[in-house]
């Protein structure tokens, strides 16, 4: 019982999934809710947002927020494809794409952190500037054209390749792949969870987010701690951008990463992490990502009029948060 009370987001996810299976079994009779391909799709589609949401969790626990990640993802996708399309042999190109995408992500994340801490600009405002600025930079660098990847083999494999799921095949009889991004998402979540719960840095991040003055009085260099959290988020955004570029074999400067920042923040909040900082868990964000992913999947499968889907999604998000609240108040 105590486990359930401490894991409200998981309860919401489980409730939603059970409902999904029931509706499918009783009503649609299509078997989609338990179809391995559909479940794989949910994981695969949401691992990109998920990677960013994990980084966002650290930033939010540290008392910050980053609205720029969606635009940054667009910019990093563009930069990494530009690096990829330099004439070189395939492995070199792919490495260049990864280094440029992730490296620029780290640098820009670091810069965001510096502007916020030493520049003393509120995170909301500083990253709002990034939100508009990075998108514009992506459009300017490409003259608003979509870029197509010139790598035919290695680079697309980053996101399109994966490990075969035992016993599952697709329509063409090929083994069904659990794509690499799913594993990368899980790995990043695991590492971040370790950072948060076990490392000295994690203690200090929580302290800075909960009460920055107290942290400073305890001898913590709070600016440094916060800058690191933004840098980690920048790296996560870079990884997501490179993988999305691989999956779509190119990058569209206008649409890549659009409103990912909202999805990522929503996932963090739905998971139960407080926007006030100082409190939260990585795995609960992972659950939040899955809740959002499941909602989108259910909406498409249910054939609800697309114009109404937003309403339904909004109501379900509120319900998910209410389930959590209910659990909390009974504890």
């Amino acid at each position: 019982m105590k486990f359930l009370k401490n894991n409200q987001a998981l309860v919401a996810l489980a409730a939603m999934y059970i409902l999904y299976v029931l509706i499918d079994v009783i009503w649609w009779k299509k078997g989609v809710a338990t179809d391995p391909q559909n479940l794989r799709n949910i994981l695969s589609q949401n691992s990109y947002t998920g990677i960013i949401a994990v980084g966002m969790t650290l930033v939010i626990i540290g008392g910050g927020i980053d609205l720029s990640v969606g635009s940054l993802m667009g910019l990093l996708g563009v930069l990494s494809i530009l690096a990829l399309n330099k004439p070189a042999d395939d492995p070199t190109k792919t490495i260049a794409a990864i280094v440029v995408g992730v490296g620029a992500g780290a640098l820009i994340g670091f810069a965001n952190g510096v502007i916020i801490t030493w520049g003393k600009i509120a995170p909301f405002v500083a990253t709002l500037a990034g939100l508009v600025g990075f998108r514009s930079l992506a459009l300017a660098l490409t003259d608003a054209r979509s870029l197509t990847s010139s790598s035919k083999d290695l680079f697309p494999g980053l996101a399109q390749g994966g490990i075969p799921i035992p016993g599952a095949v697709d329509a063409a009889g090929r083994p069904l792949l659990a794509h690499w991004p799913i594993f990368i998402f899980i790995a990043i979540a695991a590492v971040s969870s370790w950072i948060l719960n076990r490392s000295v840095y994690g203690r200090r991040l929580i302290a800075v987010g909960a009460n920055e003055t107290a942290a400073i009085y305890s001898g913590i260099r709070s600016n440094q701690i916060r800058v690191i959290s933004y840098t980690i988020l920048g790296i996560c955004t870079g990884i997501a951008a490179v993988l999305q570029g691989s999956r779509l074999t190119g990058a569209d400067p206008a649409s890549l990463g659009q409103i990912v920042e909202l999805d990522a923040i929503a996932a963090v909040v739905i998971g139960g992490t407080s926007l006030n900082g100082g409190k939260g868990q990585i795995w609960s964000t992972v659950v939040g990502v899955l809740i959002l992913g499941l909602i989108s999947n259910i909406l498409v499968i249910s054939s609800i009029n697309p114009n109404w889907q937003g309403c339904v999604k909004g109501v379900i998000i509120l319900l998910a948060v209410l389930i959590q609240r209910g659990q909390k108040s009974t504890s």
């Binding site: 000295v200 203690r203 200090r204 909960a210 009460n211 942290a215």
Partner: peptide, 25 residues
């Protein structure tokens, strides 16, 4: 003014900023 982190336990608060251990607590 109390300068404790409400979301950390007493032990973590006592050693905040001077944590035991290197990278890991």
């Amino acid at each position: 003014e109390l300068n404790l982190i409400p979301t950390l336990n007493a032990a973590d608060n006592i050693f905040l900023g001077r944590e035991k251990g290197g990278l890991t607590v």
